[in-house]
């Protein structure tokens, strides 16, 4: 019982990581996938309202997807290539668009089939900070 007052603040501190400074996420959506799909894609508009460069260096969705990555579709001479991206860099006052045919969040091994309309929390990581955003499962872009 003596530990409780110490443990509690420690636990709270862990869950109160700072949000990514300046990051505004809009029009976020996950494309609805066929039943049994092992991989889905997340898209959004990412705006940086801070006065310095914003670097997103990871994404996760524990409990919903086993493995998540930032990817980019590149169309080269008619061929679609998928390249993993370590980071997404957004200059101050700029907006980066994650959209079909380009940058996207590759969401692998969904824990269960995600229904149209479901809201899925995805956490974008910027170094020590993280911002959790709810992505809506839709058939097409908002």
């Amino acid at each position: 019982m003596k530990m409780a007052p110490i443990l509690l603040p420690l636990l709270l501190a862990g869950s109160l990581a700072e949000a990514c400074e300046g990051l505004v996420v809009e029009r976020q959506w996950i494309r609805e996938a066929p039943p049994g799909a092992r991989v889905m894609a997340g898209y959004a508009e990412l705006r940086n309202e801070a006065s310095s460069l914003l670097v997103i260096n990871g994404v996760e969705s524990p409990g919903y997807f086993e493995h998540t990555m930032i990817h980019e579709t590149q169309l080269v001479e008619g061929r679609a290539r998928m390249a993993p991206r370590e980071t997404l860099e957004i200059a101050q006052a700029a907006t980066l668009s994650l959209a079909p045919g380009g940058l996207h969040l590759m969401l692998m091994q969904p824990v269960s089939d995600l229904a149209l309309g479901a809201e899925i929390p995805l956490t974008l990581q910027c170094g020590e900070s993280r911002t959790e955003v709810r992505f809506l499962v839709r058939a097409s872009a908002p």
Binding site: R38, V39, A41, H71, A80, M82, P100, M106, S140
Partner: peptide
């Protein structure tokens, strides 16, 4: 291919 997150679902749509 079905493990394709972006191009294939987008094109089929």
């Amino acid at each position: 291919f079905t493990h394709c997150p972006d191009v294939c679902p987008t094109t089929l749509s």
